[in-house]
């Protein structure tokens, strides 16, 4: 069984790697926007050297990191499962001897890993030419970063999948999706580091899974959280990932029942 999902992930990984022309164009766009975001943040900093733990080099690295994971975390939205429901592919997939959620999870894992290499790592290498970036210094920091990145993908996938299940209930679920993904951009710290926002916004964000989707990764990378706080951050990330996955499973069961009763 596990072999099936491994194959699914492998295929998806290879397929994503073939979109090289798109990746090059995407990289150029990401870098351009990265340059602009650096200029904006530095202009906001003025004479300041450190803001809420973000040094100048740190905030530059933050723009790079958040631009680099756009494809990995599908930050600008993901509607594949929605389309599959509307096209009726999901109804057909139910006939296959596999778990629907695990199938999609495996597929997205393949896509995400390929994007991380093709778009993420490449992006950071090019970004390094433009700016002096900071890097985690110890092996433990790198391990924590890797764990956090993996967990952030899980949170992201579970959230995206949850949003996509709206397709079971509405043919116009895309509009809802756009709203849901916009919340991610704001509350994950993609537009601005969450720490720069007023306290009440940060408080609001802490009730959502979104900070654990990006902000946590950034703060772990830059060493802003460390020691016990780091462990706590990772545990919270894991808890959100787990909670969302349980929720998705439940919603998916309802949705599929509805699909079967209504006959797709």
């Amino acid at each position: 069984m596990l072999k099936l999902y491994f194959e699914v992930a492998k295929r998806s990984f290879q397929r994503t790697l073939t979109y090289r022309a798109a990746a090059v164009a995407g990289l150029a766009t990401n870098i351009f926007f990265g340059l602009l975001r650096v200029a904006i943040l530095l202009a906001l900093y003025g004479d300041r050297q450190v803001v809420e733990g973000y040094t100048v080099a740190g905030v530059i690295t933050y723009t790079g990191l958040s631009q680099a994971v756009i494809a990995y975390l599908s930050l600008f939205g993901w509607y594949d499962f929605m389309y599959a429901v509307h096209r009726g592919d999901v109804a057909a997939d139910l006939l296959k001897p596999m778990n629907l959620f695990s199938f999609w999870l495996a597929q997205d894992l393949g896509r995400a890993v390929a994007s991380l290499l093709l778009r993420g790592v490449t992006f950071m290498l090019i970004y390094e030419i433009f700016f002096d970036l900071t890097y985690p210094t110890t092996i433990w920091a790198w391990l924590a970063l890797a764990t956090s990145l993996l967990l952030s993908w899980l949170v992201s996938f579970a959230w995206r999948f949850l949003v996509n299940t709206a397709a079971f209930w509405s043919p116009n679920a895309r509009g809802f999706g756009r709203f849901a993904f916009l919340s991610v951009l704001f509350f994950s710290g993609f537009l601005m580091p969450l720490a720069f926002f007023p306290a009440w916004v940060q408080k609001l964000a802490s009730f959502t899974p979104f900070p654990y989707l990006l902000n946590t990764v950034v703060e772990i990378y830059l060493g802003i959280v460390s020691g016990p706080a780091l462990v706590e951050a990772l545990l919270l990330q894991a808890a959100w990932a787990l909670g969302l996955i349980v929720l998705v499973q439940a919603v998916l069961r309802f949705g599929l029942r509805r699909l079967v009763i209504l006959g797709g």
Partner: peptide, 17 residues
């Protein structure tokens, strides 16, 4: 959303360039 993100950090930074 985009404008709000900028406006909200202005409380702290007060100016841009």
């Amino acid at each position: 959303t985009e404008f709000a993100a900028l406006a909200l950090v202005f409380e702290r930074f007060e100016q841009i360039g």
